[in-house]
Amino acid sequence: MSNTIKVLLLKYGIPSLAVIVIAVQFFFVNTQSLNKWKGGGYGMYTGIHYYYNQIYIPGMSVDSLIANNNEMERIFKHLKLMPNDDNLMSAAEFLVKTTHKDSIHIQIWKPSVNSKHGVYSRALVNEIYYKKTSL
């Protein structure tokens, strides 16, 4: 390898990795519903943190479900971070298995704020109606 190429690689190799990570984050945000706060794209403080997204399951208390169930807590955290169809499906399957129900309805809501009128409301991000298939 010539000296010039080596120097160029050393100078711009690591910054190029940073650009690749940012590009991957943009891809995940736009195709997999990844929240902008994570993934190395430096999108923190551009919107309300995903922690404040709400998981709503009609007829069930999310707080009770995650109490003493670390796996459930992990799945719900991941669902708030990336509320796409695949993660909703995984959460629904796990929930049906854990609660022994036949069907489940899960919704993810995010905060919506209007600074002109001071109104705080919630907007639906994604939802799933899941029914256990019996073979």
Binding site: Y12, I22, Y42, M44, Y45, T46, V113, S115
Partner: peptide
């Protein structure tokens, strides 16, 4: 270059966020 990339990415993310540009995010915070 790393610093420039990090700060410019942060600027870009803010520019494409409706919640940030409208001031709604800071209003909430």
């Amino acid at each position: 270059i790393l610093l420039v990339i990090v700060i410019l990415a942060s600027v870009l993310q803010k520019l494409i966020s409706n919640q940030f540009i409208s001031g709604n995010f800071y209003y909430y915070m």
